[in-house]
Design a protein around this nucleic acid. Sequence first.
DNA 1: ATGGTAGTAGAACTA
Length: 265
Amino acid sequence: MPENPSKIQIATFNANSIRTRLDQILGWMSATQADVLCVQETKVQDSDFPQEAFQEAGLHVAFSGQKSHAGVAIISRTPPEDVLCGLDDDGPPDCPRLLRARIQGINVISAYVPQGRSIDHEMFAYKLAWLGRLRALLERHHTTADDLILCGDLNVAPEPIDIHDPKANAEHVDFHPSVREAYAHMCAWGLVDVFRLHHADVPDQYSYYDYRVRNAVDRGVGWRIDHLLATPGLAARSTRAWIDLDARRAERPSDHTFVVAEFDL
DNA sequence: ATGGTAGTAGAACTA
């Protein structure tokens, strides 16, 4: 059942292995009022997905993955409807990177946008195309009047404020002008950055801290690349949004942490 | 921060 019948909380989390992070995710769902949690980098094929653990916790879970890399899931307190994976165009569906469902009347997408490796790598061209294909999917199936939220590790820091050192990372695959442009074009379909809506001009708000950077959280060496992007009507009903840094400071954490938004239903 | 760490693997790869 929903935690609060007049509100809905929707969150996103790159788990970096859902099996390694299983107890943390179950504990987080138990301790918070989140109704929907979109997960990325589950790193597990569907036949090995730990769905019983969620069922025993009274949660629903839809998933689409593969061995070792990528993989997405949507955890919810109420049953998901019309669950579909992948980009449904003429290209590769890429099911381990995209899962959508309708939950409590809201169209929810869990996306793990390709990282891109380096700006001269073919995977970076694939990333740019992927963002365009995702916009096309939205255009095919929805209008901006729908209640829709795109959640996930979108692997883009949209603005200089979203990265600890924009100058040093000007050529990075998550911040290069070409990827920010592709991301902006996707958002221009009609998506509002719900976190930034509630924290305009606030720096040092990051969802990802590289394991390799020592004391990254304390030093603020992070990136805001995990996003909750809502259609205008849904975004207008958002009441607050936050990043749960405690989970990044916990024992054996993911390198990403939870981003959450609350909406009036 | 041009090195570093974590996860899946069971050696390199991806991030």
